[in-house]
Simulated assay, not measured.
Amino acid sequence: MRDENALFARLAQSPFRRRFHLGAKERQYCIDKGPAVIGQHAADFIQQRLAAAEPRNDGKQTPMRGHPVFIAQHATATCCRGCLAKWHGIAAHQPLTAEQQHYIGQVIHRWLVEEMNR
C-alpha cells in the first residue's frame, strides 16, 4: 500500500482517473445519507466485490455509475484487483486483509470528501 498523498498526486496525472466527478444526483445522495452510511456502503462493496482472492467478474465488477462509491472507486483505482495491484501495490490472487480493506475505504472516503468540497 502506498502513501495516500503520493497516490493522489499520481491519480491527478491520469487523464482517465481525473475525469471522474460526482454529479448533482450523487452529491445529493451523499448529503442525504451522510458519511457514516456512505462509508458502510464502501466497506460492503469492498467486502463483496474486491476482498476475495479471485473476485467474480474481476475487472468488470464495479459499475461506472449508479452510486457515489462506484465513481470514487474508478477515480481512485480501487475498482478491481488489477488496479489495486498497479496503483496501490496490493497483490492480486490473494484475499484482502482487514488492513487492506480499511485502507481502500480510507482512499475512497478521502476522494469523496475532496469531491464534495470541490
Rank of each mutant, 00 (worst) to 15 (best):
Q47S: 13
G34N: 08
G34I: 00
L22S: 02
E54V: 03
A52C: 08
E114L: 12
M116E: 13
N57Y: 10
A52I: 10
I108W: 03
K86M: 00
C83T: 04
H67M: 14
C79Y: 11
L112T: 13
P15N: 08
C79Q: 05
E99A: 15
F16E: 08
A91L: 06
H88D: 07
L112P: 06
K60N: 11
G34M: 11
A53N: 10
T97A: 11
Q61E: 12
R118K: 14
A43S: 11
A24K: 14
R19Q: 15
Q73Y: 03
F8E: 00
C79G: 05
I38K: 01
A53S: 12
L22H: 12
F16L: 13
V107Y: 05
D3W: 06
R110Y: 04
V69Y: 01
H74W: 15
R49V: 06
A9F: 12
R2E: 12
A72S: 10
Q106I: 02
A24R: 15
N117E: 15
C79L: 13
D32M: 01
E114Q: 14
H88L: 06
P35Q: 11
C80V: 07
Q13C: 07
P63T: 04
Q73C: 05
R18H: 06
E54C: 02
S14A: 04
F70C: 02
I90V: 05
E115W: 03
C80D: 00
G66N: 07
R56E: 11
Q40H: 12
R2A: 09
D58M: 02
A85C: 04
D58C: 13
F45A: 05
V37L: 10
V113L: 15
Q106D: 08
I71L: 13
F70W: 08
R110G: 09
K25Q: 14
F20L: 13
C80L: 01
W87N: 01
R19S: 14
Q40K: 10
D44M: 03
K25C: 10
R27M: 14
H74M: 05
A12R: 00
Y29W: 15
S14H: 12
E114K: 12
Q101W: 00
A92T: 09
D3E: 14
N117L: 11
R10F: 04
Q73I: 05
Q47L: 08
I31V: 15
F8Y: 10
R10E: 11
G66D: 08
F70R: 03
Q47V: 00
R18W: 01
H41D: 14
N117M: 13
A6F: 09
H88T: 03
R10L: 14
